[in-house]
Write a protein that binds this DNA or RNA. Sequence first.
DNA 1: TTTATAAATGTAAAAATTACACTTAATATT
DNA 2: AATATTAAGTGTAATTTTTACATTTATAAA
Lengths: 234, 234
Amino acid sequence: MKYSGQARLLVAVDCIIFGFDGDNFKILLIQRGFAPEKKKWSLMGGFIQPEESLEIAANRILKKLTGLEGVYMEQLQAFSNPDRDPVERTIAVAYFALIDIQKYQKQLSTDYHAEWFLLDKMPKLILDHNPMVEIAKNRLRYKAALHPLLFELLPEKFTIPQLQALYEGLYSTTFDKRNFSRKLLSTGLLIRQKEKDKENSRKGAFYFKLDKLKYSDNFDAFLKFIPNPDKFIS
Amino acid sequence: MKYSGQARLLVAVDCIIFGFDGDNFKILLIQRGFAPEKKKWSLMGGFIQPEESLEIAANRILKKLTGLEGVYMEQLQAFSNPDRDPVERTIAVAYFALIDIQKYQKQLSTDYHAEWFLLDKMPKLILDHNPMVEIAKNRLRYKAALHPLLFELLPEKFTIPQLQALYEGLYSTTFDKRNFSRKLLSTGLLIRQKEKDKENSRKGAFYFKLDKLKYSDNFDAFLKFIPNPDKFIS
DNA sequence: TTTATAAATGTAAAAATTACACTTAATATT
DNA sequence: AATATTAAGTGTAATTTTTACATTTATAAA
């Protein structure tokens, strides 16, 4: 028993993979090894398989490229312009992922000619992938203004100055460090460690870890990390 | 030139249509006139056509049911569990719409046996439509806490007490009317009219209209209508 | 021992939010 | 005509949150 007389379409999943290298936001792109658009840069994607949900497909695709599982990933939206793929009508559901760039295993992706690009210096991508990335950036700015999302981009131990650089990078602005650290510490999500990071200064900066329990409890809380976030969202 | 060896799927659009009758939130449902699940209540939906984007399809479907165009509508998310439709694998992209219930033309929908239900007293729906509605309610609560979205549910002229009832209904709570009106008026979005609504009190309540220019300018602004919105969002 | 450098911290002023109760306008009642 | 009724409308003081801003501290290098 089937629905007759209706068109069936290809459904693709595309992953927008964000990372942070300590100084700048990055995005992981691949160079297509096959026609059409061979050699052009692209988001990592693939078609949904008959037995998969979109979430499963997105995780499969992410794992294939990065070797990572259990990564933060969120459905962005479906892109459905009938002309978006000149080869054949395809609907793409975009997901964005936040990964700890240090966990990314380069060798896994040599198959795909993957490369991290500075988010601000991204090449032209195939199809409608550039607008997808723009929408994902905005969604990330939106969500990170209210929820403790950006920790997903950091390693287990991180310092307050690193965290501030992360926020400042996302919003292309600067924050007063006294107010910033007070706000972040007041969430109660951070546990100070005894060790310091001595890489970036003589004095060293204390490492912090996330209080994972409080983190998962507060993930959906409105924490107002960024004052007037609408200034930064287009 | 086609992508070979990939499965093609049905893609459906389902519309979650919210209204407000002055006292309660409502949702517009239809009773399916055909098998499977004939006579069961359902969201209004349909399959995407070859030349349509999802947005166009959603608007087509909404217009067919309500007669309305230019309505506020937003993509909720794609639902893709492989078993969600027992007849045939179908991906559904849900949209939610906010309409002024007074503009809804009943006669248009007799074709579909459409009916407004109290949102809290909704029947069981087919497939995964109940969870779709739950997700839509949460999204609406989330977004309305920050953005001036709910005006889409009201007629052109409305009173502050009506507006407060609307917010109180969505969050199942009460607000102090002094603080509520101060907050809403401080947005600068409301223009007081000379006439009063005398339906609900002897004194009468002043009508207000939206300042449409400021409204569209501020639609994406973070206005914090609701204190601690995470209390209300699950 | 001194110097250099980034990390860490406190406080006062301003703004926003909260809690709370009386007055007013208009109709209905006597 | 006076009075009662009812929901609309409004103000203020206390608290909390946010903002602006400068000095001290820890450490390694010279």
